[in-house]
Amino acid sequence: MSRRKAREMALQTLFQMDYNEDITTEPALEMVFSEYEVVADKDKVYAKHLIAGAKNSLAEIDAIIAKAAYDWKIERMPGVDRNIVRLAIYELNFSTEPVPPGVVINEAVELAKEYGTEDSARFVNGILGALVKNKEVP
């Protein structure tokens, strides 16, 4: 597997938790892991890192999103798009493991193409690109 798969698993987990407040991280993550034949330990660790980081920084991340997507209320954004952007902003602004902005944006756009609507990739790219351009993220 790869970091891409770890991001995919983190997205699936955050999405579940976003729509089911009764589910906690571990059960949600175990459900996601069970859908894959093999999950490398390093991928589990990175997925957990992304989920914990995004959850712990959620208020700050959502404030960044609200500022960048001024025409969209966060709760009105499609859940997949919202959680892809949350993960990307976590990686760009808060993660202890630096990843170049271009890589983070590309990975987020690829997730949006795979899991979102036909407009998701453009939406995700627009928000993240604006944040990088305006130096809202490193």
Rank of each mutant, 00 (worst) to 15 (best):
S34R: 08
N93S: 15
G116I: 08
W72E: 08
A108V: 11
N125M: 14
A47G: 04
L131R: 08
S34V: 03
V132D: 14
K133P: 03
S57Y: 13
E91V: 06
N20E: 11
P98R: 13
L92N: 00
N134L: 13
A108I: 10
L58G: 01
S120Q: 03
I89H: 02
P101C: 11
D71V: 13
N106S: 15
D62H: 01
N83Q: 14
L87S: 03
R122F: 06
N93A: 12
E118Y: 13
T117V: 12
K135I: 10
V45E: 15
Y36W: 11
E136D: 05
K55W: 00
K133I: 12
S2N: 10
V39D: 05
L128E: 07
Y90V: 02
I74W: 04
V137A: 15
V80I: 12
L131I: 05
I61R: 08
I61E: 03
I65L: 02
V104K: 04
R82I: 07
V45T: 09
D18T: 13
L50Y: 06
V38G: 04
D43F: 03
A66H: 01
G102F: 06
S57W: 07
A40F: 05
I64T: 00
K5S: 10
T96E: 11
A88C: 05
A40R: 10
L111A: 08
V38D: 13
I64N: 01
M9C: 11
E97A: 10
V39T: 09
D119S: 13
A54C: 05
N83M: 09
E26D: 09
K135P: 09
N93H: 05
E60P: 07
A130K: 15
A121F: 08
Q12Y: 08
K73D: 15
P98C: 03
A59Y: 01
R76S: 15
V80S: 11
Y46F: 15
L111C: 02
A47Q: 02
